[in-house]
Write a protein that binds this DNA or RNA. Structure first.
Lengths: 242, 242
DNA sequence: GTTGATTGGGCTAGTCTCAGACCATTGATG
DNA sequence: CATCAATGGTCTGAGACTAGCCCAATCAAC
């Protein structure tokens, strides 16, 4: 990765990650696992969703059927029907984390963690560096409050919502997409980490620090706060690499 | 973008940017415009390139033919033949910038600038935050020296190389790809900006500051140095939005 | 109940894309 | 000058994907 060919690797990477079906399954799984569509809610109607995803309804339906058979969705016909999310993130059990880490491979893991660190810090910095309108500030503080009031059941979903809103509030779709992508790549890991009260308290303090720095308009502090927050996760995961 | 639906927009975005042909043209144009394949050099052989891009040779050849007809490539048959890059970035003329900005639209422009700011600052921060081996440090300083010694003809290409090596040196392919993507989205803009000596001198100072901060292992300073550097470009472009 | 709007289910004809094989050209090498 | 390896040029049959259409089920409203 040190020589001239690094950029060839970067730019001449695969144009498509797989076929349309696979990519669609992946994308829907994103929406479900990131909690964009919460358990009990339903996906948009097939026709609308197909347009949004830029694929045909046939392909979308194949993907939905795969997720249905895998137990993520419950599809019901007729008016007020739809594809309802049944997936509830399982409570992490001992050994889950080690298994997930082993499944990913150390290279992908460090790549994902590095990527997440860069884009989330960048997003926080950018957001802190621009004047925050009152309503945007309200959104951020609302997400923080929601997260602090969350049950264990909802915690990961609302944590995701909080983190992603930082990127969304910058107003850059590209940045929001990058952060969503980064989050997804570590979501299996996060779901496998036991949620201990001491860790949650620690995270809550860090979340408040992030919001405070953003509201104060201090890019350096925002960057540091996010970095510190993510470093906690990274350090925990790195312990499993040795 | 402030409500719940922001994440729906983010996650349920199009699965594919277009058909395989269009995406391939775009990707090859990246390689050419970013100077990954310099003028006079040739692309890898079709068979190899098709495998790398994950597409069929037929589709790749259609893309190559399009770029040939558009004047970017000169394709020669036989041994030692290949698709040679003929494109040389044109010297910016007055009015180019205004036209390019108008073509992009203000929304896409601010999106691209914001995205670039976030990922490049994030990359510099990450790189500064990890111990730099001697050879990696040498690569970075080599790129800086190359850039400082560049002719006007080579400047943009080597500037790209310098900026991208920061992301590449983090060792994260995802981050490298994000930075390459960000750079590409502003490359037409950068190419339309007249290269004035005073600006080049200014940029050179900032580039040195970035390298110094990275080498010193100071993430905050690195982040600030990159932010300041990119802010110059952004400010110049924003002037065309009013 | 009947109706009507909304939603999933399914079919078909046509286009895009692919894998693989074979042909044509070039030019360094012996 | 003949050879041959590397490279672009071309064809074909199969599979993936799409657009558009109509059918079937459901359920609130009347």
């Amino acid at each position: 990765m040190l020589d001239e060919s690094a950029r060839l690797m970067t730019v001449l990477r695969p144009v498509r990650a797989g076929n349309a079906f696979e990519e669609t399954v992946e994308r829907l799984l994103q929406a479900i696992k990131l909690g964009v569509v919460a358990p009990g809610e339903k996906l948009p109607p097939e026709r609308e969703l197909a347009v949004r995803l830029g694929i045909s309804r046939v392909t979308l339906r194949e993907a939905i059927r795969a997720l249905q058979e895998a137990g993520y969705l419950d599809v019901r016909r007729g008016r007020y029907g739809g594809a309802f999310v049944t997936y509830v993130p399982p409570r992490p059990a001992d050994g889950d984390l080690r298994r997930v880490v082993a499944d990913m491979g150390t290279a992908d893991l460090t790549d994902a963690l590095t990527f997440r660190m860069a884009v989330e810090c960048g997003a926080a910095q950018v957001l802190a560096g621009t004047p925050l309108t009152a309503d945007r500030r309200a959104v951020l503080e609302r997400r923080l409050a929601d997260l602090n009031a969350a049950s264990l059941e909802d915690y990961r979903r609302l944590d995701t919502a909080f983190h992603l809103s930082i990127a969304e509030l910058t107003g850059s779709p590209l940045l929001a997409a990058a952060c969503a992508d980064a989050r997804l790549r570590v979501s299996d890991l996060l779901n496998a980490i036991p949620m201990l009260q001491v860790n949650l308290d620690h995270a809550a303090t860090q979340h408040r620090a992030i919001v405070a720095a953003v509201v104060a308009g201090d890019p350096d502090a925002a960057r540091r706060a996010v970095a510190e927050h993510l470093e906690g996760t990274a350090a925990l995961l790195r312990a499993f690499l040795s």
